[in-house]
Design a protein around this nucleic acid. Structure first.
Lengths: 354, 354
DNA sequence: GCAATGATATTATACGTATTAGTTATGACG
DNA sequence: CGTCATAACTAATACGTATAATATCATTGC
């Protein structure tokens, strides 16, 4: 059970018959001014391979004054449990991207507790104590937390924060392409009475989805009335159900519904099921998110967000900042990635008028 | 943008007017034979607090020959995408548990690729290269990977591996309590014709669920026939749908269905929806897993697995081993946690015979 | 023939901590 | 009064790496 010590650069040096410094220079390649002959280089590499040498991360971190750790602060929103898939996807893709670029990925977040201010403090301290090289914030957080990290010289990248009070690089999504395609798709199928079920928060994300929808409607000369645009202050499942019931109770039902999120769509499909309205024969349904839309019945046509790309860009932006730390500061770039419509089986031409 | 160096133990020592060694002794408390006067101790603690001192993890790791890293190898199964929620839950709870005990949690896994042998090699090497102190395996992996880590002196704990060829501590679930409660519940409601929709793999987990179900039925003197026990070799959604269609096509339909997983239940509910069989009025449905059962319509009564407890026990077992590394090896303990039935709205008394 | 250059490698050092071995003062004991 | 134990600390060191500062040697230019 005693752990066998792994090979060190000194072991490699001894085997190759050179000094430890030479080993280090060979393995760190280009970024040194020191030159090593091709023959020596080969001997070192061979020795390293033979011993299965891999540098000790702690020793490197200590010497380089850089931990190689990227912190990730997930957004777990008590009000919206169904956002979990989103943040799980971001997490695993950011994890992979960081790993591929030689960084360690350390996630820390308020898993069970609601997002308290004190928790925020703890997490900021957590990343500082662990000497993270930078932190990715998933979802809007208090500007205070971001600022505190910046004060300590830590680069920060924010995902899904369309408006920022703190100037850091940002990766967001443009809801318009996907939502426009969704409305176009419905119109092409023949729909004219298209309803919207969404959230009316103070959250810019909600506003963006709504305005994208309204703009797309307007482009086709279609009206949007208080009767067809139904909003609730929260993302809850039950709200999707309630709003859809209201839509169905109207004298003229819509022939299609666009739901502002998968969970709202789930609520909508509950209401439709209860009212025995068949999708897509009697009514078409499109959701935004495309996280578990494919799991619903029927599998929903949905506007997808590019989670893998979001995560990769965020990691890339963060690493760029980390490697630039001692040079001139980079301008806080804002990356905006497009959404896209995935066609499935929840949309069809509207029923004949009747 | 230049990063302000955090305070070191030497800074603390200077401020407190003592040597760095004394600071270290004070902060590491009991495990030293060296004595420090109460007054000095206070001075050191005050200085540390004033500077916001926190020890440098890399320096500690280097000196202690212990990284403080717990590795986590998630199970992402291409055949069963709906197991994602399970492993996400395990991951966040294990993460939190590790963090609470002062360990760093590093997750690495084949996110997108299928589980290749070469990927397994890479991941084993990844944890070795990062000098993890121990690794938690989520879900059955090849014994080879486990063995290779053990050969390198790394403790391993396996979750959800009911039978092991490699003797490591294990944390698993006993399907019986929950499934027995589910069958009892249905029988109490008046059901006599209870069907099973499940997977027939070579996987002991599947067998355990099936036998638990059959035993529970037998306890009530109820028959299980080839007509009511429907099995498919894979967990796919479509299979749940297909098997349920077969059940509904029979001359005498069951009045209740027990689905061996949430995804099978989802498939079942699709079939029921398509056949216009209303749940729970016309048929009761119970699932196993309780991951997204609550999201379905109606919210499903489901047998839940204790993910938080599983993760916490796994972390505790691993840390116990890590801290025992230089002492006598611990016996490979096997922890088995019970499942439990969560009642929701998918079960009701059977329809009157007709 | 000798200083100057360039190529190639080595020695020495610092990163921040934990711990072993040693130091100083203080009193106890014979 | 000298030896010895004890309390309370400090000095020195090693963990494994990256790199600045040197060293060695052959070759070139004059």
């Amino acid at each position: 059970m005693a752990r066998p010590r792994s090979a060190t650069s000194t072991d490699v040096a001894r085997l190759a018959g050179v000094s430890q410094a030479t080993v280090s220079v060979v393995l760190n390649g280009a970024r040194s001014t020191i030159r090593v002959s091709a023959e020596t280089r080969q001997r070192v590499l061979a020795a390293a391979a033979e011993l299965g040498y891999s540098p000790h991360p702690a020793a490197q971190a200590l010497r380089r004054q850089r931990s190689g750790i990227i912190g990730f602060l997930p957004r777990i929103d008590r009000d919206a449990p169904f956002t979990h898939p989103i943040h799980y996807l971001l997490s695993i893709h950011a994890n992979r991207a960081a790993r591929e670029r030689g960084f360690q990925f350390v996630e820390a977040g308020p898993e069970t507790d609601p997002w308290r201010d004190s928790a925020e403090d703890e997490l900021v301290r957590y990343f500082l104590n662990h000497r993270a090289d930078g932190v990715i914030f998933d979802g809007p957080k208090s500007a205070g937390a971001v600022q505190r990290l910046l004060d300590h010289g830590l680069p920060v990248v924010q995902i899904f924060r369309p408006q920022w009070s703190v100037p850091t690089p940002t990766v967001t999504v443009d809801a318009r392409p996907g939502i426009t395609a969704a409305v176009d798709h419905l119109v092409t199928l023949g729909h004219r009475r298209i309803a919207f079920v969404g959230r009316a928060g103070n959250h810019p994300v909600d506003l963006a989805r709504l305005t994208a929808f309204l703009t797309a409607l307007a482009n086709h000369g279609l009206p949007a009335t208080a009767a067809t645009v139904r909003l609730s202050p929260i993302y809850e499942l039950d709200q999707g159900e309630r709003l859809t019931r209201e839509l169905l109770a109207q004298r003229t039902r819509p022939t299609a519904i666009f739901a502002g999120s998968d969970s709202l769509a789930l609520g909508a499909s509950r209401a439709l099921y209860a009212a025995r309205v068949h999708v897509p024969d009697e009514l078409s349904l499109i959701s935004y998110d495309d996280t578990f839309a494919v799991q619903l019945y029927p599998p929903l046509t949905s506007v997808a967000q590019p989670f893998a790309a979001l995560a990769e860009r965020a990691v890339a932006l963060l690493i760029a900042q980390i490697e630039q730390l001692d040079g001139p500061p980079l301008p806080p770039e804002q990356v905006v990635l497009p959404t896209q419509l995935n066609l499935r089986q929840s949309t069809a031409p509207p029923m004949r008028a009747g």
